[in-house]
């Protein structure tokens, strides 16, 4: 199971890198979304995907899934959500002010910074 997840995460990272190297700002932001998705899945996978009950004590199970990575992922999700929201608004503002979505055209010149 971990092997499968590793391949999947690798694909997510590959797509994220590809998208982040493109010219359109929105594709870059989609790339950051995929990147953080891959990072969160990796955090879950690296802690082990062994069988066990959900981490609720009421389940009275013999073994539970490791609760720490779940808490870490929850934290990381909220943080990347905040950053992505900020980034999207920034891209919107930049589109209004600079009038372009193309990273290459966002170079300043002496007269127009």
């Amino acid at each position: 199971m971990e092997i499968l997840m590793a391949i999947l995460i690798g694909l997510l990272f590959a797509s994220a890198v590809y998208l982040m190297l493109s010219k359109s700002l929105l594709r870059i932001i989609i790339g950051t979304g995929l990147l953080s998705h891959g990072a969160h899945l990796l955090l879950l996978t690296m802690a082990g995907l062994k069988r066990g009950s959900v981490p609720l004590l009421g389940e009275q199970a013999e073994s539970y899934a490791d609760p720490i990575p779940q808490a870490l992922i929850l934290t990381a999700i909220v943080i990347s959500f905040g950053v992505t929201a900020f980034f999207l608004v920034l891209a919107y503002r930049a589109y209004q002010e600079l009038g372009t979505d193309n990273i290459d055209e966002m170079r300043g010149s002496k007269n127009n910074d």
Partner: peptide, 26 residues
């Protein structure tokens, strides 16, 4: 304008390095 443009680059670099930080901690 210059702040908007440079923020995009700065945020992109730091989002990437933060994702890498999470991966490394994992």
């Amino acid at each position: 304008k210059i702040q908007l443009r440079e923020s995009i680059k700065y945020i992109l670099v730091n989002v990437t390095s933060s994702a890498l930080f999470v991966i490394t901690v994992g």
